[in-house]
């Protein structure tokens, strides 16, 4: 079974970019353009990993990460923040909110899939 990846990202171009790269590598990619629907999709579609933008309309990435962590059934799902937030403490804040990892934007198309794969494998190894 192919791993399902949920992307929560409000920028359509970036969403398309990540979907394209991951889709080409054979992942089953689903996307949400806001936090609320992202959480709903996570609960119903049970992705293997969540890629989360921080700057989202309404409910921001910090709140989404915290909310996802409140559901025990999603406890093992890695949440990777993909964001261009780069000021001091941004990484620490999102990790504190419940994220597993952090990929800085702009993503490198040559290595992005590999990076996501690493987080996925790390989670699988922990789960076994």
């Amino acid at each position: 079974m192919t791993d399902r990846i949920l992307i929560i990202e409000d920028n359509a171009q970036n969403m398309y970019l990540m979907k394209f790269l991951l889709g080409k590598s054979g992942f089953d990619v689903v996307g949400a353009d806001n936090g609320r629907s992202g959480i709903e999709m996570a609960l119903t579609l049970r992705p293997a990993i969540v890629l989360l933008d921080i700057q989202l309309p309404g409910m921001d990435g910090y709140a989404v990460a915290a909310e996802l962590r409140r559901h025990p059934e999603l406890a093992h799902v890695p949440i990777v923040a993909v964001t261009s937030y780069a000021m001091a403490g941004d990484r620490e804040s999102i990790m504190a909110a419940g994220a597993t990892g952090y990929i800085e934007k702009p993503i490198n198309p040559d290595t992005f899939v590999e990076e996501v794969g690493c987080y996925l494998h790390a989670a699988e190894n922990r789960g076994e």
């Binding site: 394209f20 261009s84 702009p106 490198n108 198309p109």
Partner: peptide, 9 residues
């Protein structure tokens, strides 16, 4: 992000 990304693709 999308300029670099799509160019790379």
């Amino acid at each position: 992000n999308s300029i670099i990304g799509f160019t790379g693709i």
